[in-house]
Structure formats: structure tokens, C-alpha cells
């Protein structure tokens, strides 16, 4: 008997196709494109702000273009997906043991969602009031 193990090739660029679990993972990873692009948008906002009122108001105008609105709407969807996927794994990364028992994962996730809701409401209220 001779040994001749057969090695199956793994596609380096298409391995995630046809596997719902891997596709969900890639969707999560792709959120970085939109988080990154939006960070650049914030950077541009700061640049225009530093250049004075006119430049900044032109920037706000550009945001209101159809392309700007579509970009932001898509970014909002990906940002929400990032938030949900990020919070849902927090009990894995940071389990909390009190006495003998571990705090149920749902409680840790719930606390993050509650904190998120609080931050969101706070920002909305303060942003409106300023």
C-alpha cells in the first residue's frame, strides 16, 4: 500500500461563494469600505470647515446631490450592519463571570444596544439643540 494523499485546491479569491455563512462574513468585512469612505467624508467636512463658511456650505450642498444621498443611504445600511455584527459577538470577546456563573450573552449584547440607543438619542438631542 502506497500513500499518496490528495490535496484539494482552495480558491484564493472565490472560496466564499456559494456558502451563506462565508457570504455573511464577507458582507461584514465589506462594511469597512463604507466606514472608511465615510471617515474620508468627515475629513473633507473638517477641511471645508477650516476653510470658512462658504467652503463649508458648498460642502453641505454637495452632500445633498443625488450621488451624495445615495452614498449616505447605502453607508447607513452598512454602518448599521457593522454595529449589529459588532455588538452581537461582544459576549464571545468579553465574557463576564460574576461569582460562579457567566452573565448570559443576551444581557451583554442588550447592554450594548441600550448604550447605543442612549448615545444615539444623546447625539440627536445635542445636535439639534446646538
Amino acid at each position: 500500500m502506497s500513500r499518496r494523499p490528495y490535496v484539494r485546491e482552495v480558491s484564493k479569491s472565490r472560496w466564499f461563494l456559494g456558502q451563506p455563512r462565508y457570504l455573511r462574513y464577507m458582507a461584514r468585512e465589506l462594511t469597512c469600505v463604507f466606514i472608511g469612505a465615510y471617515s474620508v467624508l468627515l475629513l473633507v467636512a473638517l477641511k471645508r470647515l477650516s476653510e470658512g463658511r462658504e467652503a463649508y456650505e458648498a460642502f453641505l450642498q454637495a452632500l445633498a446631490s443625488p450621488a451624495g444621498i445615495v452614498f449616505q443611504a447605502v453607508t447607513l445600511a452598512f454602518a448599521l450592519y457593522h454595529t449589529v455584527t459588532w455588538f452581537n459577538v461582544t459576549p464571545k470577546a468579553m465574557p463576564i463571570q460574576i461569582g460562579e456563573a457567566f452573565v448570559p450573552g443576551g444581557v451583554i449584547i442588550g447592554a450594548h444596544y441600550a448604550g447605543w440607543a442612549a448615545v444615539t438619542v444623546l447625539v440627536l438631542v445635542l445636535a439639534e439643540a446646538l
Binding site: I35, Y38, L41, L42, L60, L63, A64, G68, I69, Q72, A73, T75, L76, A79, L80, H82, T83, W86, F87, H112, G115, W116, V119, T120, V123, L124, L126, A127, E128, A129, L130
Partner: peptide, 24 residues
């Protein structure tokens, strides 16, 4: 980003749609 990006996008999107909040 998980905590703040959604609300920031929401604010700029509202601004783009005509409702510029005080902060923006």
C-alpha cells in the same frame, strides 16, 4: 464606529435632505 457612525450618517443624511441640525 459601532456606537457613533450610524447616528452621524443619519445626521448628515438629514442635512442632505434639507434638515440641517444645529450642530451641522
Amino acid at each position: 464606529t459601532a456606537f457613533v457612525t450610524p447616528v452621524l450618517v443619519l445626521l448628515t443624511l438629514l442635512a442632505a435632505l434639507g434638515h440641517v441640525v444645529g450642530l451641522l
